[in-house]
Design a binder for these strands. Structure first.
Length: 645
DNA sequence: CTAGGGTTAG
């Protein structure tokens, strides 16, 4: 038995720090208690911080129990708890603890408290809370602590808010290599890779020290610019400023990733091979996704399969899952997800979101529901904005708008995000609930959420599908005047569609002629559709010809135009277009339909009889058709042909 | 007296 009487406090802390397992630490802790040393706050703080930072849920829980028994913890102990939770899967507890500390009114936060809090805000995707913490930092006079400045920069960069990041950067009296690194990667993440290189220039001019993180950030700038030449230069720079490169895993991963993302797969694999037997799962995952992005899913899968099962982690599985989704192989994606669950690997939020959105794309409502419900019970998932919005999107796309709205309504305001509003509004739009969409849009503004480009596509199309012409026009105008968003091609497209559907063909055509872009095929198609509905043959010809010129090998366009001509009794013209199709040997790629029943997916093609129950299905359809007819419904085949994609 | 910031892959 160890006797701890003779040990000094610092020795006890050192002893704890040397523990490799929770069990060892528990033994030391027991001895501390047996020897009556636990009343000493300093000793106790060592114990609490060890368990809080152990990285395990049990350890954190143990420290929480000890913590709750202290009447007045000192600021070090508060910080240890806050830090522990900021790294845990429930970072919101860190914020909760901070509030408790303030409420207790005994201890004030110090310069160590805030970086942990800011980290929690980032992990929770809660910019609003982060701003409040920023206010507390100012109030407590910690604006010039370099650690806090860097944590603030990280906060704003993580939310792509480069305006506030710059503000903090410019205003700060202290800046170091970390500040510059954070800004460089912030610019890249915000999609402003070019600015990041300018920042790097500034860094060089001011002779700021460069380190491996600088190189990593610069490499990601090159990936984002798809500039392998610049990437190679940075690769050289790495040798100059760092000396040894191949022993630096972080750097090797970034290098492989850069070459992979730039499409230089040979180079990526060459760098990878220099890692010999130490190939990291990170670098391998980069190569897997790169192949998938180049359209070589099979190659990606082969590499993925060659990776040692024990090496594979959630990220590499998710990479393969998303690769399948990217090329539309949703069934394979979901198969992998189920396999991953079966192997006992715990999917994280990103993995589950990937699976749920694959269900959304497939229309696999019941599988989607199963996955959603299973993970909704794990509450770190519910805290995550991406999880909620993916679920809303899935239910809406699978036709269950009630559940989608239910989830939206049950989400507390502080967990709502712009993305959640976007999924909700576009879900409502697809279900023809334009009025509700507008209500939600207004609520969004009242709660202080800024609509973005995506929001406007959703809300404008909601107006379009519901004939809300005036609302649509007002919202479109407000984009620039109120929200300072430049309407993009898609927004003009929504307006053309909206006006066209409402029969304002001239107004729609005016938009096409006057907008700052050359109309794309989507816009011409919308206009052509409107001409068809409202019988404007002249404009239809213009739109149709434009469409043909734009997508000469897109068979569906020919079919549309020919159907339209036939429909307006211009049979000669129609035959001419048909002939063009045959002459060019153009074929419309078949459009598969999927229906999910009792957890099984059924695949169909038009006119397809391969399905086991094709005959029964046909009979059922005939019954339904007869039923419809008896109620006086008139079936129009021409409308069907027109709306085909 | 103990401690904090930037990290690549989905």
């Amino acid at each position: 038995m160890v006797r701890l009487f003779g040990f000094g406090n610092q020795t006890l802390n050192a002893l704890l720090r040397s523990c490799r397992t929770i069990k060892e630490a528990l033994q030391i802790h027991a001895q501390i208690v047996v020897n009556g040393r636990h009343a000493d706050l300093f000793v106790l703080s060592g114990v609490i911080s060890f368990f809080a930072l152990s990285g395990t849920r049990n350890g954190l829980h143990h420290s929480r129990v000890l913590f709750s028994q202290i009447h007045f913890p000192d600021v070090f102990i508060w910080n240890a708890m806050i830090r522990g939770y900021s790294l845990s899967d429930t970072p919101e507890d860190a914020i909760f603890l901070y509030k408790s500390m303030l409420a207790e009114g005994v201890q004030s936060p110090n310069e160590f408290t805030f970086p942990f809090l800011l980290k929690s805000c980032v992990r929770l995707s809660r910019l609003q809370t982060g701003r409040q913490v920023h206010c507390h930092i100012t109030k407590n006079g910690f604006e010039s602590d370099i650690y806090i400045v860097n944590a603030l920069l990280h906060l704003y960069c993580a939310f792509r808010d480069m305006k506030n990041a710059c503000y903090v950067f410019e205003k700060s009296l202290v800046r170091d290599c970390v500040s510059y690194n954070t800004m460089i990667s912030g610019y890249v993440q915000a999609g402003l890779a070019f600015s990041s290189l300018q920042f790097f220039k500034k860094m060089l001019e001011l002779h700021i020290w460069l380190d491996e993180y600088t190189v990593v950030a610069l490499l990601s700038a090159c990936s984002s610019l798809i500039d392998p030449i610049a990437g190679k230069q940075i690769h050289c720079l790495a040798y100059i400023i760092l000396g040894s490169v191949s022993s630096n895993i972080l750097l090797m991963n970034a290098l492989v990733d850069m070459y992979a993302k730039c499409g230089c797969l040979k180079m990526a694999e060459r760098v990878l091979s220099t890692m010999g037997t130490n190939k990291s799962i990170t670098a391998l995952t980069s190569v897997v996704s790169a192949y998938a992005q180049c359209g070589e899913v099979e190659v990606a899968r082969r590499i993925f399969d060659q990776i040692d099962e024990k090496e594979k982690d959630v990220v590499s599985w998710t990479a393969m899952i998303s690769s399948y989704s990217r090329v539309g192989h949703f069934l394979e994606a979901l198969e992998l997800f189920v396999q991953l669950e079966g192997l006992g690997i715990k999917p994280d939020v990103v993995a589950v979101v990937a699976a749920i959105s694959a269900c959304a794309r497939l229309g696999a409502l019941e599988l989607g529901r199963r996955i959603h419900q299973k993970y909704a019970e794990n509450w770190p998932f519910c805290q995550h904005g991406d999880f909620t919005s993916a679920a809303v999107d899935m239910y809406a796309k699978c036709g269950d708008i009630d559940t989608a709205m239910d989830i939206f309504r049950k989400t507390p305001d502080h967990l709502k995000t712009t993305v959640l509003y976007n999924s909700t509004i576009s879900g409502l739009a697809h279900h023809g609930l334009g009025e509700t969409a507008i209500t939600i849009f207004k609520e969004m503004g009242l709660l202080g959420f800024r609509p973005n480009e995506v929001t406007f596509v959703a809300i404008l199309s909601a107006c379009g599908h519901n004939g809300l012409v005036e609302d649509g026009k007002k919202l479109f105008e407000s984009m620039l005047t109120v929200y300072n968003i430049n309407p993009a091609m898609e927004h003009y497209g929504c307006m053309v569609d909206l006006l066209g559907r409402a029969g304002c063909l001239n107004e729609a055509y005016d938009i096409v002629k006057n907008m700052p872009f050359k109309a794309n095929s989507v816009i011409w198609r919308a206009l052509l559709g409107a001409c068809k509905t409202h019988g404007d043959v002249e404009l239809a010809k213009t739109a149709g010809e434009e469409l043909l010129a734009m997508e000469p090998d897109h068979g569906a366009r020919y079919v549309m135009l020919s159907n339209m001509l036939a429909d307006t009794d211009q049979h000669e013209e129609a035959t001419r277009v048909r002939k063009t199709i045959d002459d060019a040997g153009i074929q419309k790629p078949p459009g598969w339909s999927y229906v999910e029943l009792n957890g099984t997916l059924h695949k169909f093609l038009a006119g397809d009889r391969s399905h086991l129950e094709a005959k029964a299905t046909k009979l059922m359809l005939r019954d339904m058709y007869m039923g419809l007819k008896s109620t006086g419904y008139v079936f129009s085949a021409s409308k069907m042909v027109f709306d085909m994609d």
